[in-house]
Amino acid sequence: MMVKILPQLLICFWITLPFCFAEKTKERSARQRDAEFTDKYQPCMQGVPGVQGRDGNPGINGIPGTPGIPGRDGFKGEKGECVTERFDDPWKPNFKQCAWNSLNYGIDLGKIAECTFTKQRPDSALRVLFSGSLRLKCKTACCQRWYFTFNGAECTGPLPIESIIYLDQGSPELNSTINIHRTSTVEGLCDGIQAGLVDVGIWVGTCADYPRGDASTGWNSVSRVIIEELPK
C-alpha cells in the first residue's frame, strides 16, 4: 500500500513545488521594495556639525596670457602754438607827472615848461602828454604850434609830437578879435631815445607859411605834463 501512495506523493510534491518558490520570491521582492522605500523617504536624524576646516594655501600664479591685439592710432591733434621762453626782467611801470597852477604864459615863441624824466631802457618808447589851456588871437589869419622836445630836439621816431591852432581874421564890423581859452592836449609816442635823464619840454612856435598870432598857455587853470615809459 505504501508503494502505491509514494508515487502519488511525489507527483503532488513536484506539482506544488513551483508555487512555493513563487510565493517566497514574491515575499522577498515585497520586503526589498519596503526597505528601498524606507531608505529613500524616511528622514534620518542630523548629526552635530563638524569643525570648520582651515583655508588652503594660496595657489601659484597662472600661466601668462597671450598679448592682446594692438590698438588703432588715435585722431591727429591740432597744431600747437610755438611759445618762446623769455628770461628778461619783468617790466616795471615807470612814469612821472609835472604840474603847474596858472602858468599864464603869454610867449609866442619858445619853451613854456620842462619836466626831467629818467628813462630806464634803451629799447623802450616814451609816451608824453601835455594838458592845459591854450589860446590864440589875431586880427588877420594866424597859426600857432605847440610841440614837445626831448633833450632840446623834436621827436624823429617816427615824427614830431605837436598840436596847432589856426584862427581866421576877426570881425572888422565890431573891431574886435576872438579871445577863447580852451583846455587842449598835445600827445604822442616817441622811439629812439637813449636811456638816462631826458629833458622833456613843451614849446610854442609858428606854423609854416602862416603869420604869428598872440598865443597864451595855461591861463587861469592847471597845466600838466605826463611822461610814461612803455615796452615796444
Rank of each mutant, 00 (worst) to 15 (best):
residue 1 M to G: 12
residue 1 M to W: 12
residue 2 M to P: 01
residue 4 K to P: 00
residue 5 I to P: 00
residue 7 P to D: 10
residue 8 Q to E: 02
residue 11 I to D: 02
residue 23 E to H: 05
residue 28 R to L: 12
residue 31 R to W: 09
residue 33 R to S: 14
residue 34 D to S: 11
residue 35 A to V: 15
residue 39 D to L: 13
residue 40 K to G: 07
residue 41 Y to V: 15
residue 44 C to M: 12
residue 45 M to S: 07
residue 45 M to I: 06
residue 46 Q to R: 07
residue 47 G to I: 01
residue 49 P to K: 04
residue 49 P to D: 10
residue 52 Q to W: 05
residue 56 G to R: 07
residue 58 P to D: 06
residue 61 N to M: 14
residue 63 I to V: 14
residue 67 P to M: 13
residue 72 R to K: 04
residue 73 D to N: 15
residue 76 K to T: 15
residue 77 G to I: 06
residue 78 E to L: 01
residue 80 G to D: 07
residue 85 E to F: 11
residue 85 E to I: 14
residue 87 F to I: 09
residue 87 F to K: 11
residue 89 D to C: 05
residue 90 P to I: 14
residue 92 K to Q: 08
residue 94 N to Q: 10
residue 95 F to E: 13
residue 98 C to H: 01
residue 99 A to R: 09
residue 103 L to N: 02
residue 106 G to D: 11
residue 106 G to E: 14
residue 112 I to M: 03
residue 112 I to E: 00
residue 113 A to E: 04
residue 119 K to I: 10
residue 120 Q to I: 09
residue 125 A to Y: 04
residue 126 L to T: 11
residue 126 L to I: 14
residue 128 V to L: 03
residue 133 S to T: 06
residue 137 K to N: 08
residue 145 R to T: 15
residue 147 Y to K: 08
residue 149 T to G: 08
residue 151 N to C: 11
residue 154 E to C: 04
residue 157 G to V: 15
residue 161 I to Y: 01
residue 162 E to Y: 10
residue 162 E to V: 09
residue 162 E to C: 05
residue 164 I to S: 06
residue 165 I to S: 03
residue 171 S to H: 04
residue 175 N to W: 13
residue 175 N to K: 12
residue 176 S to D: 05
residue 179 N to M: 06
residue 182 R to H: 06
residue 184 S to A: 10
residue 185 T to R: 03
residue 185 T to S: 05
residue 188 G to H: 06
residue 188 G to I: 07
residue 191 D to E: 15
residue 192 G to E: 05
residue 194 Q to C: 13
residue 196 G to L: 06
residue 200 V to D: 03
residue 201 G to M: 01
residue 201 G to A: 13
residue 205 G to P: 00
residue 206 T to G: 12
residue 206 T to H: 07
residue 207 C to S: 04
residue 208 A to P: 06
residue 219 W to P: 00
residue 220 N to E: 15
residue 222 V to Y: 02
residue 226 I to A: 15
residue 229 E to N: 08
residue 231 P to M: 09
residue 232 K to M: 15
